[in-house]
């Protein structure tokens, strides 16, 4: 076989392979939607994060505005410190609430940001002070049972 024909075919092959990897990244994967542009990071401390994982989405009003970059345990306060990267395009007031929600009853957990009313905006390295822990199903159930029990005690 002529060398030029081989070169041509191998060229087509390589281009198609590269296009396939590109297609997987763009069309199948989340390289377009999932990667954020420039971000700034803020942290928030929670007493209990439930099943929150790194790279989980951060949403505000249902829109993804950032991702969780890391989760660490603070040995002084015994709290979980969650660092989140927020897209530079969005700014939030200083007194923004950070809550851990669950998508659906058993879905993955994410952080929801609820804007407060402060004039100053969160900056890189700031800490969100108003947080609400994850709802732990077992806790809720035991609380419910306990309340039921105490209710019936009262009635007696």
């Amino acid at each position: 076989m002529e060398r030029t024909t081989i070169d041509l075919w191998v060229g087509i092959f390589a281009a198609a392979g590269a296009a396939a990897i590109f297609g997987l990244a763009m069309k199948v994967g989340n390289l377009t939607s999932g990667t954020l542009g420039e971000t700034y990071s803020v942290s928030a401390a929670f007493e209990n994060i439930g099943g929150l994982k790194p790279r989980a989405p951060v949403k505000s009003a249902g829109v993804v505005v950032g991702r969780i970059s890391s989760i660490q345990f603070d040995n002084k306060t015994y709290e979980a410190v969650v660092t989140i990267s927020v897209d530079k395009r969005y700014s939030f007031p200083k007194d923004t609430f950070a809550n851990i929600y669950t998508a659906g009853l058993l879905g993955e957990q994410y952080i929801g940001l609820e804007a407060g009313g402060d004039d100053e905006a969160l900056k890189n390295g700031d800490k969100i002070t108003h947080t609400q822990d994850a709802v732990v199903l077992e806790k809720m159930i035991s609380q419910f049972l306990y309340n039921k029990a105490s209710d019936s005690e009262d009635k007696k």
Partner: peptide
């Protein structure tokens, strides 16, 4: 079909690991 796919297939964890 496409949006669910894109929301759940991660570029780094899934595509790059496959490569």
């Amino acid at each position: 079909f496409w949006s669910q796919m894109q929301a759940n297939v991660d570029w780094r964890v899934d595509v790059v690991n496959g490569v």
